[in-house]
Every structure is written in structure tokens, then in C-alpha cells.
């Protein structure tokens, strides 16, 4: 590792690099979950969506360039698109099922985790070995002569897209007619009904759009960082994103900060390993989970509902 030449400076640099790389999937999944929860439903199944997205993006990128003769500059983008569409299919199943009477959306989420990861592992078995063309990166580190800095500042266009999407979504909720519909459906279904909005249709669209974003989050994993397909690639990031939305108080812009924070927490373990601190590496790698739990303990309270929480969230109504 190049970080060795930097000595202990490799740790903050590694964390910075890990933040810029590792936060992209968190960002997409949390924005997707934010949109879903704003409409009053929870989608725990985004973990399965993330895996399916990662697998389909990788598989399509590989197949398109190796088998179908599509140039490697296009094939990863095709993979990203297909990942989003695969997410939408899973989102449709979740949206349809979770709106049936007496069906609990959290239970559907657990089922979708199992189903989504099953699908991803079933079709992904063949793609663990081959090397798929990766998404291009934007190099912001050319000013530095140090290769470690250069590689740390290779930023994915998807990440930039996600960073722009966060304020855009906040604007959507705040200032557009459709954003108002979503908020109405999530906060007060009765009011939405009085406005003449179809609760079912709004929720269906929100869940499908949210799953599209989660699928793209999966593409970030397999086509950018870590840039490979394996069965342990997401390891609960989809779930952490759900907790992250609570931490971000259902605000898309705060989802962005929270994602950066989580990406950084995830990078602590590998950054320490790169300078030779190997003691307790499993515990360092578990940092994001511990952090999520701590944040939930601190932010939740039995006395009041959280500020910013959509009113209909977690209640059973049509």
C-alpha cells in the first residue's frame, strides 16, 4: 500500500478517501429510503435491493463489454441503468405487498431482504470471477505528486450526482406540488384523501423511485468502490441507511451529511490496517453498526415522537 510511505498521515488520508468512496451507496440508499418514508411506508428490503443492484450492475457491465461488444465506456453506465430498473421491480413487489390489508411493511421488508439477496446470489454466482469494466472516475488529485493522494481523490460521477440529488430532493419536498402530495400522504393520509390524492398511487411511486435509487447505490458498490461483486459486498449497508434516515430526521440534505459520516466511520478500520494496526480489525470494521446503534439510542426517545417524522409512519392504515 502506498499509504506506508506516508506513515501515520495515511490514516486521515485513508479515512478521507474512504469517506468519498464509501459514502456513495449510503447516500443513494438513504435518499431512496427518505423518499419512501416520507410517503409513510418503511422499506427495510433496501438491503436486498442494494445487493440485487450491485449484482445486476456488475453482470450487465461485464456481459455488455465482453459478450455483446458494447464499448467499455458505455457498458458500466448500462449496468447502472439496469441496476436501477432491477431495484424498481423489487420496489414494485414491496409497494404492492405492503399495501395489502393487514400486511405489515416491516415484515415485507424482511421478506424482501431474503428474496432480494437470494436473487442476487442466485444470478450472481457466475459473476464472482470475471472482471467487469468499472465506471470512470473524475480525478481531482492531479495537483499532487503523491500517488496515495491521487488515488484518494478519484471521485465517482455517481457520487457527485448523489450530492446534487440531496438538495434537489429537499427542494422537491418543499416547493413542488408533487412534493406536497408525498408529504401529505405520509403525514396525514386523511388530508391527502381530502385533497383528492390517491394514497396508494403516491406510495407506489415513492417506493418504486426509492428502490431505483437503492439499486443505483448497489451499482456504486460493484462498479466503483470496492468495485467487485461478492456475496458479502453490502454487509448491512442497506439497513444502516434505514437507521441513517432516522438520524437525518427525514431531511435529504442531512442524509448527505449522515452518509459522509457513515462512509468515514466505515473507513476507519481499513485506514488503520493500512498503517499496520491489525489488532481488533473486526471490531473496527463493526464501527458503523455500533455507531448506528449508539445514534439510535441517543436520538430516539420514549417520551415524544421524533421531530420531522412523517405522521403516518409505522401506523396501519390504507
Amino acid at each position: 500500500m502506498a499509504a506506508e510511505a506516508l506513515g501515520w498521515w495515511g490514516v486521515p488520508l485513508g479515512i478521507l478517501a474512504g469517506t468519498l468512496r464509501g459514502s456513495a451507496p449510503f447516500l443513494f440508499v438513504s435518499l431512496g429510503e427518505c423518499l419512501t418514508e416520507k410517503s409513510g411506508k418503511i422499506n427495510l428490503g433496501l438491503e436486498g435491493t442494494l445487493l440485487t443492484g450491485a449484482m445486476s450492475a456488475y453482470a450487465i457491465s461485464y456481459l455488455a463489454s465482453d459478450k455483446w461488444g458494447i464499448p467499455t465506456s458505455v457498458s458500466p453506465w448500462l449496468g447502472v441503468l439496469v441496476a436501477g430498473c432491477a431495484g424498481m421491480i423489487l420496489g414494485f413487489i414491496h409497494a404492492w405487498l405492503s399495501q395489502q390489508p393487514k400486511v405489515n411493511d416491516i415484515a415485507v421488508g424482511i421478506a424482501m431482504i431474503i428474496f432480494g439477496s437470494g436473487i442476487a446470489f442466485y444470478f450472481g454466482k457466475a459473476f464472482i470471477q470475471p472482471k467487469a469494466p468499472q465506471l470512470p472516475t473524475i480525478d481531482l488529485g492531479n495537483w499532487s505528486a503523491m500517488p496515495a493522494v491521487q488515488s484518494a481523490l478519484k471521485i465517482s460521477p455517481l457520487f457527485i450526482f448523489g450530492v446534487l440529488l440531496a438538495p434537489l430532493m429537499a427542494w422537491f419536498f418543499k416547493s413542488t406540488r408533487w412534493g406536497l402530495f408525498v408529504r401529505a400522504v405520509g403525514d396525514s393520509p386523511d388530508a391527502a384523501l381530502a385533497m383528492g390524492v390517491s394514497i396508494k398511487r403516491v406510495r407506489m411511486l415513492c417506493i418504486i423511485a426509492g428502490s431505483f435509487l437503492a439499486g443505483i447505490g448497489g451499482a456504486c458498490l460493484s462498479l466503483y468502490y470496492p468495485g467487485l461483486w461478492s456475496e458479502s459486498i453490502s454487509s448491512g449497508q442497506g439497513l444502516m441507511a434505514v437507521a441513517l434516515v432516522i438520524f437525518a430526521r427525514w431531511n435529504p440534505v442531512q442524509c448527505l451529511w449522515a452518509s459522509l459520516f457513515f462512509g468515514g466511520a466505515q473507513a476507519i478500520g481499513p485506514a488503520l490496517q493500512s498503517v499496520g494496526v491489525d489488532q481488533g480489525r473486526y471490531l473496527f470494521n463493526a464501527m458503523p453498526y455500533i455507531l448506528t446503534l449508539l445514534i439510535m439510542i441517543i436520538t430516539c426517545s420514549p417520551k415524544k415522537t421524533l421531530s420531522g417524522a412523517p405522521g403516518a409512519l409505522g401506523t396501519i392504515n390504507g
Binding site: G118, F121, K125
Partner: peptide
């Protein structure tokens, strides 16, 4: 020659159908 995840897919399907059946009671 089916991948070992086949069982996982089957479990997922059972889970989803059983959840749907909740609405039939």
C-alpha cells in the same frame, strides 16, 4: 447444478406468499 442460493430464493418466495396470505384471513 443450481447455486446454493436457490434455497434462499425459495425461502424468499415462501415468505412473500405467506405475507400476502395474511390479507386473506
Amino acid at each position: 447444478g443450481m447455486p446454493d442460493a436457490t434455497v434462499l430464493v425459495f425461502q424468499g418466495l415462501v415468505f412473500l406468499v405467506v405475507l400476502y396470505s395474511e390479507s386473506l384471513y
